[in-house]
Design a protein around this nucleic acid. Sequence first.
DNA 1: CGGGAGGTTGACAATCGTCAATCAGAGTGG
DNA 2: CCACTCTGATTGACGATTGTCAACCTCCCG
Lengths: 267, 267
Amino acid sequence: MLPPLPSGRYVLNRPEKQSSSDQSPLEPMVRKLAYWHDLDAADRAALLALPHTVKSLEQHQYIVRERDRAAYSCVLLSGFAMRHKIVGGGYRQICAIHMRGEMVDLQNSLLGTADHSVQMLTPGQIAMIPREEVTRLAFERPAVGKAMWIDTLVDASIFREWIANVGRRDARSRIAHVLCEFALRLKLAGLGEQTGYQLPMTQEQLGDVTGLTSVHVNRTLKSLEADGLIERVSPRSITIGDWKKLADAGDFDSNYLHLREDEPALA
Amino acid sequence: MLPPLPSGRYVLNRPEKQSSSDQSPLEPMVRKLAYWHDLDAADRAALLALPHTVKSLEQHQYIVRERDRAAYSCVLLSGFAMRHKIVGGGYRQICAIHMRGEMVDLQNSLLGTADHSVQMLTPGQIAMIPREEVTRLAFERPAVGKAMWIDTLVDASIFREWIANVGRRDARSRIAHVLCEFALRLKLAGLGEQTGYQLPMTQEQLGDVTGLTSVHVNRTLKSLEADGLIERVSPRSITIGDWKKLADAGDFDSNYLHLREDEPALA
DNA sequence: CGGGAGGTTGACAATCGTCAATCAGAGTGG
DNA sequence: CCACTCTGATTGACGATTGTCAACCTCCCG
């Protein structure tokens, strides 16, 4: 028996009645996986046929809490989420930002207990898939399994880059670097342009991403703006005036995102 | 055709002649994978039967270089290795330390080009396995595949902890934290005790792990020693006098290592 | 005995955090 | 329509952790 679902509003889906339609809520996940590895029609159909429950979440609502034993794998359908850890003294470190189509806890479903929390940054929706269904499919269909494996490896590559970012870059470079990363990832998810986008987080959260205080984030953003690398008409809107200058300031090289070579974003 | 092997001294192995012996160089890898997921006799035999070439490496020799296209998956048989990234300004960040039995580039074998370098910290030996052999086995034998997948997920969990370590802890906590992590991991690999071990790196490298300068690492170690949390008879030897005090100082909770519950190291 | 790598120490500088006040905008209720 | 409130952004003054520079020491090895 699966444990009871967390509280919230639910929309039941009957995948067998809509799996052939591209309106399935799981469609963004298929698109993301197919980006990493070729999936044939049967692979895609099997993914769309995964039993799932769609749930609407409010801002700040938890998807996974540290030390949970997750029974579901969750796919983010809309909105933004973050992974974070709380360290001694009550400080928080955000170690990943997730957006539409990303599988939010493949990690927690194969491992026993969650080693960190996942929380909504904005309101949004998730699809909950029983964890055994995901692992079963991964081994029944090698193409699907490889795509998922690659997906976890790319996540790990981003973790490594973030270690370098908070470990060895100064505040200005850290901020510039994450602004570049977000530009490319939002564009890939169809949620923004490389030349500008809406930041889905506060300056305090940006501080928790970069290991800085919100005060210093604020000063650094202002300095980047003063030097003409970015523009901000409202606090959350980022316009990248000169990509090359921002990428230089952030020591940014998109290699670690493992984008496909036909991706024109590498400039 | 596989690309030519890098230069170095080689020892050819004939796995079919020794796969039933526990003297196979791949034995430490099997032990590590079996720690994550039950492997039956056939799984173990299939792992030991993987074609491989043993190679001796000197200190500082590279296993993988950033932007390489790796054709082999490497298993560390002896010695220590590190993953690192070079950031602008020539600073280096070490993002992982590896020891006996660990698979050093599952990441780089499924992904195209390496996003970081892997380099020997000490002299040692690796086994090189053609990458298709590894992925083939992972999907032919689900238990092996799951063990490998879990292995990459635990690596990712450690990356996340290191993001939090360099992002949100002060120098004293960072150093204490890595000293605790090394104690447990060295013990698990049978290379040390939880109460003390030989650190396989210089203070400068410890600085590259923690995002500090070697000077500050030195002062911090001295301070930990002055407070009785550790002892050092020689610069590289670490004796942990009071595990609880060191773990407290380092805000250390072994949950993220995903050790088995029967592991007595959790104290 | 000489050379080199790594460890140790001190003086000083700089980045970044802390504290605290103020400001701006969105939503709410009267 | 207008206080009122709350969250997040902005700014300044000051302090502290950590980096930089430079010297010296210690040990190992040829």
